[in-house]
Write a protein that binds this DNA or RNA. Sequence first.
DNA 1: CCAGACGTTGTT
DNA 2: GTCTGG
DNA 3: CCAGACGTTGTT
DNA 4: GTCTGG
Length: 258
Amino acid sequence: MCYNVAYLTKRKQKYAEHHGETDADVERLGKQLEAITEKHYNASGFIYPNLLVVTNKRPDDFQMLTWGMVPFFMRDVAHPKELKWNTLNCVGEKMFETKSYKNPAEKRRCLICLDGFYEPHHYKGVSYPFFIRHKNDDPMWVAGLWDDNGHIQTVSLVTVEASPLLGRIHNDKKRMPLILPHEMRRDWLSELESPADKDALRELIQPYDDELLTTYSVPPIRSNKKLGREAAGDTPEALEEYHYDALPEEYYREVIGA
DNA sequence: CCAGACGTTGTT
DNA sequence: GTCTGG
DNA sequence: CCAGACGTTGTT
DNA sequence: GTCTGG
């Protein structure tokens, strides 16, 4: 889906430590995070939550932007829910060519800071939610595009072709968020000054290294009779591994590759 | 030319 | 604001 | 969340 | 009234 995410559910300071270059940076970023009270165990994009981001305009600050990008030219739209089309995700491979994203792709990129994200796995006509995070629980730096139409600052999450592991999990659409390797995250925010810069940026649009990820099935976020389990909602339970008897043990191993 | 779109992939 | 489709 | 739909699907 | 889809 790339429509459900978790952030700030664990030690806030980790985000500051990962992004700050100096001790002073880390301290300042840490203070910014302390001021942020919003966090989500499982937020659906369709409620248009705020996301924790670092933009190219302010690469050394955390900010909260509304999920669902409202293009700058939609001057009379006050909120993404008023848009007539879906801007929660942006297909990374096409971002320079699409009308709504081309401008943000060139000038307004950002990092979305996550603990992890959810993808649906389809088995015998039923959809099972899986959570994906770093094996070592590091924060995830996901590519985003942002915009400002004079009323609201908004963000779209960039997606890319799925890696082998994510393709087995998200087995109908085979897409995943564009997760940036930690050492590449600031490259996503760099200014484009030449065609070569644009090519370099395009090079970042790759599936992530599966070796760094772990994934497991979790309870449904909303009630769903087919899954035979109470909904977890946006609570700590949403992140906890939950085994579905309908999915054979052997099948789990094949999918997850464990 | 001009009206209309502008986007992506979930679930209950 | 800019592209697409009729 | 909230606007919009709310339905079915023949052949020898 | 309740489900679906964005």
